[in-house]
Design a protein around this nucleic acid. Sequence first.
DNA 1: CTGTTAGCGCATTCAG
DNA 2: CTGAATGCGCTAACAG
Lengths: 335, 335
Amino acid sequence: MTVTIYDVAREAGVSMATVSRVVNNNPNVKPQTRKKVFEAIERLGYRPNAVARGLASKKTTTVGVVIPDISNATYAEVARGIEDIANMYHYNIILCNADKKKEKEIRVINTLLEKQVDGLLFMGGTVTEEHIQAFKTSSVPIVLCATADENNTMPAVDIDHEKAAFDAVQMLIDNGHRRIGMISGTLQDPALGYARYHGYKNAMEQAGLPAGDEWVRAGNYRYESGIEAMKYFLSLKERPTAIFSATDEMAIGAIHAIQDEGLRVPDDISVISVDNSRMASMVRPQLTAVAQPMYDIGAVSMRLLTKLMDKESVEQAKFTLPHEIIQRKTVAQLS
Amino acid sequence: MTVTIYDVAREAGVSMATVSRVVNNNPNVKPQTRKKVFEAIERLGYRPNAVARGLASKKTTTVGVVIPDISNATYAEVARGIEDIANMYHYNIILCNADKKKEKEIRVINTLLEKQVDGLLFMGGTVTEEHIQAFKTSSVPIVLCATADENNTMPAVDIDHEKAAFDAVQMLIDNGHRRIGMISGTLQDPALGYARYHGYKNAMEQAGLPAGDEWVRAGNYRYESGIEAMKYFLSLKERPTAIFSATDEMAIGAIHAIQDEGLRVPDDISVISVDNSRMASMVRPQLTAVAQPMYDIGAVSMRLLTKLMDKESVEQAKFTLPHEIIQRKTVAQLS
DNA sequence: CTGTTAGCGCATTCAG
DNA sequence: CTGAATGCGCTAACAG
């Protein structure tokens, strides 16, 4: 039925070891016998069995990737970065959505490890003690990707979410704004919710500006929740002159809510957000936002993983990629 | 170092066959010895080696997925549908981006097959004769997903792209429009470019309306190209009263170009597109579009694949999922 | 440069 | 209900 390395050996009149050598590009084979073997392979339509190879060599050339949700544009971008670099180093990736649910995350980590991946990239919600325990049972390297590690004990690559938020708010302050509202994510979410909220809070307090609960409205990252949150701010007697949104999508909702009220962005109210997704330049006016290098986060973390898998000594196991404010049209200077 | 089934057997005082049985939930094991084995597994921290299992059983419980680009929202949606169903049937997926490049597609198909996937889901550009040849060498089932198969010889699930375009244009016609421009994709792309163009052309000709080259402008699916294409239509002495766009993103570009010209959507010019991505409801006015059930395409194709892998007889191997027009605010009736 | 020999860790007959 | 034996297809020493 299936043609094996043994069949090729017989067909070519050599030993299976020799066939293995030519298949694996081992230079120690006479060109002529190499040719014979290739011909036999061709004739038989031989295809190496990577599973058998994996069992014998203890390497599968595949890495596991646990991701919150591949249909989320931000993570999909990271995934693309991962896959491009993986490909470059001849790895394939097994992709598992885990929706930031601890149980699901732990479960897929284990099945990935059972599948003998050569390494693991973890992208999730909070990294709990249980996660660490699961990681500890691994004999292959694991790197955290776009997710925070409280105890700072694992190799990781991420951006500084709190600083990103801080910088965005600081820019608003530098432009003369003093009443600045925030549309946050869920505060339970460490990176997107909590860290960004803290960045906002720090920037405000450091400038001696008010940042009490009445200035923060939690959304669920989606457009509609941005509209809802903005409606609240619009209903205040003392409206904010600027809004800091934890995501582009909510920011766009806010912009539309403002416009629906007959007000103008940025003339009446400024808006800034974090993400800089493709949508940021697809609204009118175009959205000013803090850009997160998601593709790079994926690429760098995969590159780091390859080094770890190769047992190269890495000087640094913690990378914080720089963010950047992309100035477009939604922030005005207050006179 | 690594603990094997044999270690567990010794620890539990049984044979490895028995351990294998309990690990695989074989009922033919006395509860008491089952318990002993589980304890030994726990004590040793045994983790089954899926690669060895794969070699012995000739099943890897993983399927290969070749996809154009995971960072494209449309395909990411399909991928999520695939993974959800895969998960449900206890499969994992190996994800490979192939960018609709034939060489890359053929290459990943082969490496996926080498990895002994139990099945393959193919999502790509044109399915050429070379693709078919590669598919033929497979001993595992393959289903086409969201991609056309000229020769109609493979199991496949997709929508009727041409009909979707036809329906969109027909709706414009039904609303009294007679001068309808199209912003198309690249005509080399069979599904997104060519098929949608044909749908437009058929609808127009069937209604005795003009659909010559001056009424069609090719974009590259992106926002900016939608703006460019629309500028052309706006420059015409006899402007179209409606635009059919091959994608949401270009449609949004068109809307903004129209608004920048001081015109209004849909009062002056109507716009309809195909996709119904999340952005469709994030523009003002909200975009009327033909919805494609991308998640379902992924889910259905994966489900079909599981049946094929189980050697169930499937009554039907060709699925065309229904599309639907989501009426929002960008199409006006001409009086 | 090439062949021989052992496993890799497990599922799977086949006996008992 | 359980154990012994065999082999899945390949890599990796080790000889020669």
